[in-house]
């Protein structure tokens, strides 16, 4: 054990939706620890709680019970605006449906997180172009999402996720809408950011092939962790 706290530490996390008879326990007492620099894949059947876990890890959602420490800070006690600050400064998101702003150029989309970081316009521009170059789309900077293929859109989304140099990238089924070749491109990009930039990556996926890019695979079933280990052994 290193003396530094783990990047992410969950203990006894539960997330309950609804109440009474309609109560759904999406997460049920999850303990988990993710160290800086890891590449973690999360798998599980639908309804197993893997997306809920990802939302809580990404500070998009708050747990009903339990303690979540992000970089040593207890997230459970934070306000919405304080969680927004954590997302702004330490977390980059990649979604299955890309979630780019429509009718907005790739460059402007990538700049978006930097606006909220209060970075001046010229610097924003430079950083965003740099991020687009890292995903190989510098020549598509002024294209709207509607003019880009699915794989390109997801690469713009990855550029948006990494432009602020976050500690961790949360990727929720990043290859869910893509064919195998495109999927592999995305996974290779994520791997590169993990290896070269030391970014921690947490990725939810339902494709075992994609999970194999990770160094660690956590399996969820019925809101609990069923297994946690090397993806090659688990599969």
């Amino acid at each position: 054990m290193s003396p530094e706290p783990a990047l992410i530490q969950l203990s006894g996390i539960s997330r309950v939706y609804g109440s009474g008879d309609a109560e759904v326990r999406a997460l049920d007492g999850v303990d988990m620890e993710i160290a800086a620099g890891e590449f973690v894949a999360i798998m599980g059947p639908s309804g197993s709680g893997k997306s809920t876990a990802m939302n809580i890890l990404g500070c998009l959602d708050a747990p009903t019970q339990g303690a979540y420490q992000f970089m040593g800070v207890e997230v459970g006690g934070l306000s919405r605006d304080q969680r927004a600050l954590i997302r702004r400064n330490y977390i980059g998101f990649v979604f299955q449906g890309y979630n780019l702003l429509a009718r907005t150029s790739a460059l402007d989309n990538v700049e978006l997180p930097l606006i909220y970081k209060g970075i001046a316009r010229a610097e924003r521009r430079a950083l965003a172009l740099d991020a687009l170059a890292k995903v190989g789309l510098q020549d598509r900077a002024h294209h709207d999402p509607s003019e880009l293929s699915g794989g390109q859109q997801q690469r713009v989304a990855i550029a948006r996720a990494i432009v602020g140099q976050p500690a961790v990238i949360m990727a929720d089924e990043p290859t869910g809408n893509l064919d195998t070749a495109r999927s592999r491109e995305i996974m290779e990009l994520l791997t590169a950011f993990n290896v070269e930039d030391g970014m921690t990556i947490v990725m939810v996926t339902h494709e075992p092939d994609m999970a194999e890019y990770a160094h660690r695979l956590i399996h969820f079933i019925d809101g609990r962790i069923a297994s946690d280990g090397d993806p090659k052994q688990v599969n």
């Binding site: 990404g58 919405r80 605006d81 927004a84 997302r87 780019l100 978006l112 997180p113 909220y116």
Partner: peptide, 19 residues
């Protein structure tokens, strides 16, 4: 609907409610 999704994106990348 479109605006709501846009706001969701902005919140996800770190915008605060007030912003």
């Amino acid at each position: 609907t479109e605006r709501t999704r846009e706001i969701g994106i902005r919140l996800a990348v770190g915008a605060q409610e007030g912003q």
